[in-house]
Design a protein around this nucleic acid. Structure first.
Length: 313
DNA sequence: AACTGCATCAACCGCGCAAGG
DNA sequence: TCCTTGCGCGGTTGATGCAGT
């Protein structure tokens, strides 16, 4: 499948994958059975040593991946249902390419499966609808008269593809608004070329005045206006808990939210807008930071969280 | 039947984070 | 405080199957 010499954790961090004699490529039914039986007997974990203990000529990472994405009893096989697709779309708009978080809210689906489905189906679907799959905002036609029509990414895409500024005091994964317009409403579209550099300076040097955040995927843009005092941000984050966080996220993916917004904004398109009412934005900003912080520690609460979205899934 | 191009998805890769020594 | 180890994540690759010619 791949060149064995090229990879597999060539660094010291994952030496197991570079060992000679480690099998790679597709798993055989026999290997699946060995792995399944072993994990059912001994439980998950200790992936690094699991292959040796189980008698498999695989690296630990490969075993974990196979179990997580295929062999786990809870993994649901088969096509993504329309309601699941809808949920993925909403969650992606909120969370960006945080596939594990998205998968954690769709029972039986794995991050790998959702990621693949997104890349092969949903992103193309959105593009065909004139929506940037990364930002969930409308693609804009480049009015360049010299060339044939060209689709370019809307204003804030520069932020979505740039790396977090290490000097920023925002949490990793958070990026400041670098585009040319406010996105508080989530539906305001601006010229892709306007004043990018100026805004970048604004962000770096005067972040306290920046009114909008969005994450590294540009998926969730949130205003800090409307009375939110940035100095209280840390308090908010420190005092929040997983249950409240879960409730917040659930509220964001709840149908009622979109219904209400449509009532308030007749032209509102839930697929392309990242908007919400101002109070929600304030909370969203807080929770986005918390989301980043907790992104690697949500599994322990996922069961309870899943209960909260059963009505959606 | 043979070939080509495209779509799909399982699996791999490299990186970052957290925990422990 | 530093280093090592283990784990998990998102991005990417490549084998495979299918449709079209």
């Amino acid at each position: 499948m791949r060149n064995p010499s090229s990879g597999g954790g060539s660094t010291s961090k994952t030496p197991c994958c570079s060992k000679v004699g480690i099998k790679r490529g597709p798993w055989t039914p026999e290997e699946d059975e060995i792995l399944s039986n072993y994990i059912k007997r001994e439980g998950e974990g200790r992936w690094r040593t699991l292959p040796k203990r189980a008698g498999l000529l695989r690296c630990g990472k490969s075993c974990r991946l196979r179990w997580m994405n295929y062999l786990r009893p809870s993994v649901k096989r088969g096509r993504i249902a329309p309601d699941e697709e809808d949920l993925i779309l909403r969650l992606h708009r909120l969370l960006g390419n945080r596939w594990s978080l998205i998968a954690g809210r769709i029972p039986g689906r794995t991050d790998n499966e959702i990621k693949n489905y997104w890349n092969t189906h949903l992103s193309k679907k959105l593009i065909s609808q004139g929506i940037d799959p990364r930002t969930h905002k409308p693609l804009v036609l480049n009015p360049n008269p010299n060339n044939s029509p060209e689709i370019i990414i809307a204003h804030d895409h520069a932020a979505s593809i740039s790396k977090p500024n290490p000097e920023s005091h925002l949490s990793p994964g958070l990026l400041e608004e670098t585009g040319g317009s406010s996105l508080v409403s989530g539906i305001q579209i601006s010229d892709a070329n306007d004043q990018l550099g100026q805004d970048q300076n604004l962000v770096v040097n005067d972040i306290s005045n920046t009114q909008n955040w969005h994450n590294s995927d540009g998926a969730m843009t949130m205003g800090l206006q409307g009375g939110y005092v940035r100095g209280n941000e840390e308090d908010y984050i420190e005092n929040c808990n997983e249950d409240t966080f879960s409730s917040f996220l659930d509220s964001l993916i709840n149908d009622n939210m979109f219904v209400n917004q449509q009532q308030q904004q007749p032209t509102f398109n839930p697929l392309i807008s990242s908007s919400s009412s101002a109070p929600t934005f304030n909370h969203a900003a807080i929770w986005e930071a918390e989301l980043i912080r907790s992104s690697r520690h949500t599994s322990c609460d996922e069961q309870s969280e899943l209960k909260n979205i059963n009505h959606l899934a």
